[in-house]
Design a binder for these strands. Structure first.
Lengths: 123, 123
DNA sequence: CTTGACTACCTAGCCACACCAGGTATCATA
DNA sequence: TATGATACCTGGTGTGGCTAGGTAGTCAAG
């Protein structure tokens, strides 16, 4: 439930856009979705995730809307804008190219490893 | 001849250790080796690479030695320590695990893309 | 009714680090 | 004697993850 911050930094933006594209809508849910999609390998702390969502919104990649759930919880729901969808597509391509290159350099392109603990711990 | 800084940040340490393990020894040569190994996709600016080498040396992963080439050039030659070799191995495993996870999330695990320009420009 | 656990959001301050821009110095070539 | 390539270094700036703290509502247990 960790990730070395430098790795997270490289992947946070595409991963957030991706989980929103996949159906997660508000912060708390997005955080859980990231953990689930990554099988616990990735964990964006709240102090990381919320500012990231605000950045993406400010860049026009997400649009936000406050709603109140039937149980009475205030939630800020995010959705991709069309710019956000284009950006996600570009980030997918960028990631594919980059990870292929690094994988080739490190000789780990198809290197299977046991699940490992990466960095800090998720509370 | 670019890379988005956040991606470079995630890969710089393993890539530097790798190119040194592969035979590059001094800063200027390491910089060129990174560009060549990455087919121009990765470029560590001098203001990035030299501090990184100093960090790795300070951490005991590299040992350095000044030499003067036959043509009279002062060069600082780096070599992996045994801790450096162990670290490289760990970083390879970490990268393999991480890139597999992100690739799966983004659905780009084996996604082939045309060579693309990533971020800033290499001088 | 109070306590605790969970949900749900936010932010100020710290720190690491890539980058820019500038510096120094040597050597080869024109 | 410029000019360009080689070869090293660093101070300041900006980005952004993390820590640690805050607010506030729901719900079950005691």
């Amino acid at each position: 439930m960790p990730t070395n911050p430098d790795l997270l930094r490289a992947a946070l933006e595409p991963v957030v856009l991706e989980v929103i594209a996949t159906g997660a809508t508000y912060g708390y849910e997005i955080a859980r979705a990231i953990q689930q999609h990554s099988e616990g390998q990735l964990c964006a702390q709240e102090g990381t995730l919320y500012p990231a969502l605000h950045r993406l919104e400010k860049q026009g990649l997400l649009k936000a809307q406050w709603k109140t759930s039937p149980e009475g919880r205030r939630r800020k729901h995010y959705a991709l804008t069309s710019a956000g969808r284009r950006r996600l597509e570009a980030l997918r391509a960028e990631w594919a190219s980059f990870s292929k290159t690094i994988g080739r350099i490190l000789g780990t392109a198809h290197y299977l490893v046991p699940r490992l603990r990466l960095g800090t711990h998720c509370p």
